[in-house]
C-alpha cells in the first residue's frame, strides 16, 4: 500500500511536467517561431506575473484556504506605488510602501480568517471588493502615469539579457521552494492543510502559520503589481481583474489539491507555464482568442479531474 501511494504521488508530480513538455513539443512542431530564444524569453516574461501570484496562492491553498483578493491587492499596491513615485517619493521608498501594503492586506485577511473564524472564500471575497474600491478611490478611476524609469524597468528592463520579471519570478519561486521543502514552517503548512485538528494537537501554531501564508500571498501580489505597473507604464485602476482565477488555475493545473495538504510550488510554476504556453502558442498559430479561452478551460478541467481520480 505504502509503495502504491508513493507511485501515485510520483505520477501526480510528473503529470504536469510531462504535459508541459508534450505541449511544448507539439507547439514547436506547429510553429517555427515557438522554440526561438526570443519567444522563450517572451513566454517566460508573460507568465511571470501569474507565476509570482500563484506561488503565494500555492501556500494558501496548501493550508486548505483560498485567496480571491490577489487581483485587487495587485491593483491597489500598484496604484499606491505609482501615486507615490509620480508624486516625488524616491522609488525605493515607494516600492517598500507598495510591498508593505500588500503584506498588510494579507495580514488583514489572515486575522479575519483565523481570529474571526470566517471562511477564507468569504473573507477574501470581501477584501477583494474593499481593495478594488479603495483602488478606484485612490486613483479617481483614472490611470496614474509619470513613473520614474527605474520603476518602468521592473517590468521592461533586462539584466544580462534576461528580462527583469523573469529574474524576480525565479527568486520568488526559489524562496517559496526553500521555505516549503527545507524549513519547518513548510512542514507546518502541509500539516495544517492535511488535517487542521491533528496539526493543532501536534502543537503547530495553526493560526500563525495560516496567517503567514496570507501575508506572503499579499506580498507576492504587491510584487506582481509593481512589475505590472512597470510593464504598463502606468497604474490602471482595473488592473488585475480576474488574476485570482488565473493564479488558482495555475495552482490547480500544477497538481496542487484544492483540499489542501498536497502539492508543490514547482508544480504551480509548471502550471503557469502550461497556461502561458497555450496562450502564447495559440497566438502564434493565429487561433482566435475566443478558442483560447475554451482551450484553457479544458486544461483546467482535465487537471481537476486528475485530482479527483487520485
Amino acid at each position: 500500500m505504502q509503495g502504491n501511494v508513493q507511485i501515485k504521488d510520483r505520477v501526480r508530480q510528473l503529470g504536469p511536467g510531462l504535459a508541459a513538455i508534450v505541449l511544448g513539443l507539439a507547439l514547436a512542431l506547429l510553429s517555427d517561431q515557438f522554440l526561438t530564444a526570443s519567444n522563450i524569453l517572451n513566454l517566460l516574461r508573460q507568465i511571470s506575473i501569474n507565476a509570482i501570484i500563484a506561488c503565494g496562492m500555492t501556500l494558501v491553498i496548501l493550508t486548505g484556504g483560498i485567496d480571491l483578493s490577489v487581483g485587487s491587492v495587485l491593483a491597489l499596491s500598484g496604484a499606491v506605488l505609482a501615486g507615490l513615485a509620480s508624486g516625488g517619493t524616491p522609488w525605493p521608498l515607494a516600492l517598500l510602501a507598495c510591498l508593505a501594503l500588500g503584506a498588510a492586506v494579507g495580514l488583514f485577511n489572515g486575522v479575519v480568517i483565523t481570529r474571526g473564524r470566517v471562511a477564507p472564500f468569504v473573507a477574501t471575497l470581501a477584501t477583494m471588493a474593499i481593495a478594488r474600491g479603495l483602488t478606484l478611490v485612490y486613483t479617481g478611476g483614472r490611470p496614474i502615469t509619470g513613473l520614474p524609469s527605474a520603476l518602468r524597468s521592473l517590468g521592461t528592463g533586462y539584466v544580462l539579457g534576461i528580462p527583469v520579471p523573469i529574474i524576480i519570478m525565479a527568486v520568488v519561486f526559489l524562496l517559496a521552494y526553500i521555505m516549503l521543502v527545507h524549513m519547518p514552517v513548510g512542514r507546518f503548512i502541509y500539516a495544517v492543510g492535511s488535517n487542521e485538528e491533528s496539526a493543532r494537537f501536534a502543537g503547530i501554531p495553526v493560526a500563525r502559520v495560516t496567517t503567514l501564508t496570507y501575508v506572503l500571498t499579499g506580498l507576492a501580489a504587491a510584487l506582481a503589481g509593481a512589475i505590472l505597473t512597470g510593464r504598463l507604464n502606468s497604474a490602471q485602476p482595473t488592473a488585475g481583474s480576474g488574476f485570482e482565477l488565473d493564479a488558482i488555475a495555475a495552482v490547480v493545473v500544477g497538481g496542487t489539491s484544492l483540499a489542501g495538504g498536497r502539492g508543490s510550488v514547482l508544480g504551480t510554476v509548471v502550471g503557469a507555464l502550461i497556461i502561458g504556453m497555450l496562450d502564447n502558442g495559440l497566438n502564434l498559430l493565429g487561433v482566435s482568442s475566443f478558442y483560447q479561452q475554451v482551450a484553457q478551460g479544458v486544461v483546467i478541467l482535465l487537471a481537476v479531474l486528475m485530482d479527483r481520480r487520485k
Binding site: V22, L30, L285
Partner: peptide
C-alpha cells in the same frame, strides 16, 4: 488530452 488541444490548434 493535451495532444487533443494541440490538434485543435493545428
Amino acid at each position: 488530452a493535451v495532444l487533443a488541444v494541440a490538434m485543435l490548434a493545428a
